[in-house]
Design a protein around this nucleic acid. Structure first.
Lengths: 145, 145
DNA sequence: TTCCATGCAAACTTTTTGCATTCAT
DNA sequence: ATGAATGCAAAAAGTTTGCATGGAA
């Protein structure tokens, strides 16, 4: 969380970051955005780019493709399979659903590249966390009355 | 890369890590593995756990679910869509294929949890990198003759 | 006897945060 | 005038690496 309450003010830096993301197809990293915009706003700092990216995600105006920031996980099963990840407790479980190898061919045809493998992950709340989460939600609801 | 050549020796630590991964469904992090095994091998170090995990991945005996280690990417398109990631140049591109919302329901039924969204990524070599890669491969091949 | 594996600590990479200042409202 | 946004630098989080020593083949 970056701001004290939910009210955001206008900021040239944030507006330019959003604009850049709306006009590129390159899925840039924070540093790429920083280096691009610094030519225009020389005082810009990397920390502030990160702060604004988090705000824009919070506002639902951009999406973050996490490739970092949490611990890597290790899996003793090497055959391809899919995962369910609980956003509440962090548990990762294997899904008992068929691996769709044919998707790789589809994407190869689409991109004219070579597809080595794909990764499919579902995010949500696991069966154990779901009741706890709903209980919290109702408490929050009660406060509003 | 961790070893000078391709010859590995036996190591109790590595054997125990592999064994642990084969007997758990929990997709542990390096630290979880470290803390679990340290009870058995008190001298164990975290750095060595990381080293051995990398060797086991190299050997194809385990899989790594990267949640860290590279820069996060940001996407100005917030509607759900899938990505192709070139393992050679790092380019990430949007795929022009339909988003399969129904998968979420399937997984909800499977897990009895709540599914908020899913993420599907294809890894390989993009059309631009493919010829370069094949050229390198043929050079490597030539050396073997 | 060779050189891979280890522990330890230091270094590295990526992201977040504290603080004093600036700026939008 | 208020407090969100900023730059800067320090810190945090996660992983890798250098070095001297131990251990498998």
């Amino acid at each position: 969380m970056t701001t004290t309450n939910g009210r955001y003010r206008h900021s040239k830096q944030r507006a330019r970051i959003l604009d850049l993301l709306h006009h590129t197809k390159s899925h840039p990293t924070a540093i790429m955005i920083f280096e691009e915009l610094r030519r225009e706003i020389p005082s810009l700092s990397l920390g502030n780019v990160y702060r604004n990216l988090n705000i824009l995600v919070e506002q639902g105006l951009i999406r973050e493709l996490k490739m970092g920031s949490t611990y890597d996980r290790y899996d003793g099963t090497v055959s391809p399979h899919y995962h369910f990840i609980c956003e509440r407790c962090g548990e990762i479980s294997d899904l008992d659903m068929p691996h769709n190898e044919a998707l790789n061919d589809k994407v190869r045809a689409l991109t004219n590249g070579q597809v080595n493998y794909h990764r499919l992950e579902f995010y949500g709340s696991c069966a154990r966390c779901l009741p706890i989460q709903q209980e919290h939600a109702s408490h929050r609801g009660a406060k509003l009355i």
